[in-house]
Simulated scan of single mutants.
Amino acid sequence: MGDLTGLPDLLRECTPQVLAAVVRRYGDFETCEDAVQEALIAAVQQWPVSGIPEQPRNWLITVAGRRRVEMLRNESARRRREETVHHDPAPEVRGDDELALLLLCCHPALSVPAQVTLTLRAVGGLTTAEIARALLLPEATVGQRISRAKQRIRESGARFEMPAPDERLPAVRHVLYLIFNEGHTASSGDTLNRVELTREAIRLTRQLHRRLPDDGETAGLLALMLLTDARRPARTGPDGALIPLAEQDRSRWDTSMITEGVALITGTLESAPIGPFQLQAAIAAIHDEAARPEDTDWPQILILYGLLHALAPGPMVTLNRIVASAMVHGPETGLAALDELTDAPTRHRTAAVRAHLLEMAGDRAGAHEQYRLAARLTLSLPEQRYLSSRAARLTKP
């Protein structure tokens, strides 16, 4: 029978390849996706007893094709087509299938939450229950979102084909970035990291980079993920409490991920047009290469945030640029810049930055008030605990 400990990883790796091959052959994404899920269930039930087939991917493709026929058997209008399909050989897997599937899951007819969910299901191979746990959503909600997404794809008339990558590639990168960010710093809940999401985002971005090795922004996105996730072992204490970057034990950082990320961003900056993900990765590399917090090259980070603000302005870029400016020119400069902000969509982060700068400037009472405000505004329990502890520390003599 053989060792079955790697069965979940094998099925997850095969899922996008199987689904892509079946959809490319038969066309109807909704029915084919359901059929592939049935094939995966069959594998989970049968392989522990009969053993893993010599060609597990082909086995899954064949079973999924049969399941699809069974799903359509009661539709008299398709009986002739069904008989033809039944006798056709199983479709082969092609090199660009997974990329085409990823682009299909990020179809412009879908909302961003639907794109994220469908990508995790169809390309990531996560079950509905796994997605629900990862996103902290009811399983029924995730199931409905997947069902509606497949229906929208059908109604839009989208076909399984390779569009011009430039048309949909920015959306794909954005979805993978959102998946990674939600895993790296969960927007709500009692844990800071959701490793299953960061791991899946890195895996899918690696696949995308392998298909498009000359795309600078994809390389930059992968480098950013690696350089950021490298710090994960030091981001929380034994009790799950958040540890800020300046206080982390840098010996716990993953040096292999840092080495890979630095090599990626160095190579792409030398050979490709500069984009937002590359700039963010370059900033992350500067942080990761500093042996001590005081060794951080803040003037260079400030320059990079200026470039990033010009290319992709946004509230988080603005806040991070203010922090970098304060580290270079002093906290008063940062506080003055915060006073000029009129739009605050990230209220708790703005309050946290103000608290940090007030603490740097020696205003303990003001920092205490802002830390408490930030703690009240965030939905993340680890962040709440961290911000509250910072506030409490300032009340001590």
Rank of each mutant, 00 (worst) to 15 (best):
C106Y: 09
E98W: 06
L126Y: 01
I131T: 05
G143E: 01
T127N: 09
A100N: 11
L118P: 03
L103H: 07
P138M: 03
D166Q: 15
V172E: 04
L99N: 10
T119R: 00
D166E: 15
L99D: 08
A134D: 03
P170N: 12
G125L: 13
L118S: 04
H107P: 11
P170H: 10
R168D: 13
L99Q: 10
P163Q: 13
R154T: 15
G157I: 07
T127D: 12
A158H: 14
L103K: 10
P113W: 12
L120Q: 04
L101E: 02
A134V: 05
L99V: 02
L101N: 02
A132W: 00
T128Y: 01
E161Y: 08
G124W: 03
A149V: 10
I146R: 00
S147T: 12
R152Y: 08
P108N: 10
L126F: 05
V142G: 06
C105E: 06
G125K: 01
A100H: 05
K150S: 12
V112S: 10
A100T: 09
P165E: 15
V123P: 00
K150Q: 14
H107E: 09
I146E: 00
L169P: 07
I146P: 00
C106T: 14
L120M: 08
E98A: 08
R154H: 14
G157H: 13
V112Y: 09
E167V: 09
R145K: 04
A100L: 03
C106D: 11
V112D: 13
L104S: 04
P163N: 13
L103R: 06
M162G: 14
I131Q: 01
A129W: 01
R154C: 12
A158Y: 14
E155D: 11
A171W: 11
R159Y: 07
T127S: 15
R121L: 09
R148C: 03
C106R: 10
A114D: 01
T141N: 05
T128R: 02
I131F: 04
I153W: 07
C105D: 07
T127R: 13
A164L: 13
R152I: 15
T117W: 00
Q115L: 01
L103F: 04
V142H: 03
L135Y: 05
P170A: 08
Q115W: 01
T119L: 05
A100S: 11
L120C: 08
I146Q: 00
L104D: 05
V116S: 03
A122W: 02
A114L: 02
L135Q: 05
K150P: 12
R154E: 13
A109C: 08
C106K: 09
G124D: 00
Q115A: 02
A149W: 00
H107Y: 07
A158N: 10
L126M: 04
L103E: 11
M162L: 14
V123Q: 01
C106V: 12
R121D: 03
G124T: 08
A122K: 04
Q115E: 03
T141R: 06
Q144A: 10
D166L: 13
Q115N: 02
D166S: 14
L110C: 07
D166K: 14
V142A: 07
